[in-house]
Simulated assay, not measured.
Amino acid sequence: MPIKIADTLPARRILEAEGVTVMGEADAVRQDIRPLRIGLLNLMPNKISTETQLARLLGATPLQIELTLVRITDHVARNTPADHMAAFYRPWCQVEADRFDGFVITGAPVERLPFEDVRYWSEFRTILDWTQTHVHRTMTICWAAQAALYHFHGVPKHELPRKAFGVFPHRSLVPASPYLRGFSDSFDVPVSRWTEVCPDALQDATDLRVLAANEETGPCVVDDPQRRTLHMFNHLEYETETLAEEYRRDGGNQLPTNYFPADDPSHPPQNRWRSHAHLLFANWIDSIYQTAPFDPAAIGARADHRSR
């Protein structure tokens, strides 16, 4: 089934060229089904690239998805054209009365700052609390995952002496988890961050469960069932060239581990994580489909919370 996005969104042309089925609003209304409403709070600098990456994964699932792009209310994007933001993004203050089956929150280039020093920290915390009453299931990525664990559980982050950067093999620790259905025992994941959450801190929060991890870079996927949230510290959504672009952007100062063939940046990298990215998002969407109320107005109701 297709993903419904605006006809003029740049991601549409890219996804159609890749064979992803994309639906316009006129076609969507003719289908007698309720699409899953997914919100994307995009905090990344290159919003067009990030929205394309995530729309690709959401649109590959077998259900009709209606994607809403959301931004922080008063934050001005510096790396994305203003007309793009005005045309395709809604400030959170305009969607706070809406209800979503799923909500994705991306990372942000502020991970080395204390959480409280992030300019939009107050609204971000409000949004996290809002997901508990207006969203059925949430997925947080990279900085957003660390921030959510800090907000909800008091789990601190720690700055690394060297950036965790490259493609690392991760072990599936809970193969029976519905989120890891179909995963290999070991799978590669792109990692790009300056901070980490220590496993010991996660163990102290007894209602959290680490689903996948790497011995060098730590936890990767954490299930937070009481908050109906899946936390992903790394970047399965990345495209093949994303780490190469970051490497060049940073002046070639740190070679990404296990990424370029023979560690030679002149050789094009190969994508070894794409299939697991699709699996994770398909499993997450399926968990929403299996448990979300048919009536969107019931999302967040007390009875719905107790039953999940």
Rank of each mutant, 00 (worst) to 15 (best):
L230T: 01
E246Q: 14
G107S: 10
M1W: 05
L243C: 04
E123P: 07
H75F: 13
I38N: 01
R308W: 12
R119I: 09
D27W: 08
P178L: 02
L15H: 03
P62C: 07
R249S: 06
K163Y: 08
W273L: 09
P265I: 02
D223T: 01
P81C: 08
K157E: 08
F115R: 09
R78H: 14
Q146W: 08
L173H: 02
V76Q: 12
V118M: 10
T61Y: 01
S192I: 05
S49D: 14
I105R: 02
E96A: 14
H134A: 11
V104H: 06
Q203D: 14
R306I: 12
V155N: 06
A148E: 13
D224V: 00
T133Q: 10
S186A: 13
E66P: 05
K47C: 05
L40T: 06
D304K: 11
L54M: 12
L40R: 02
Q146C: 09
C142S: 07
V76I: 14
T217Q: 05
R119D: 15
C93E: 14
S266F: 07
D263C: 01
T68D: 11
R227K: 15
M232K: 02
P261R: 08
Q254T: 13
W194G: 04
A148T: 11
P81I: 07
E245P: 03
D7K: 15
S172Q: 09
Y120C: 02
E96P: 08
L160Y: 01
E18A: 07
Q94H: 09
T229K: 02
F187V: 01
L63N: 13
I288V: 14
K47Y: 00
V110H: 11
F187H: 08
L280E: 01
R71L: 04
H75L: 13
V110M: 12
V222K: 04
D7C: 10
L279A: 12
P81D: 10
R125P: 04
P62V: 05
P2H: 08
I299C: 05
P261K: 07
A298S: 14
L211I: 09
H276Q: 12
L230E: 04
P293A: 06
P265A: 02
E123T: 07
C142I: 05
L160I: 00
R71T: 06
E51P: 01
H278F: 15
K4S: 12
L202N: 00
E111N: 05
A212T: 05
E16I: 00
S122C: 10
D207W: 00
N42A: 12
I48W: 00
S186T: 15
H235E: 06
Q203A: 11
Q53T: 04
F124T: 04
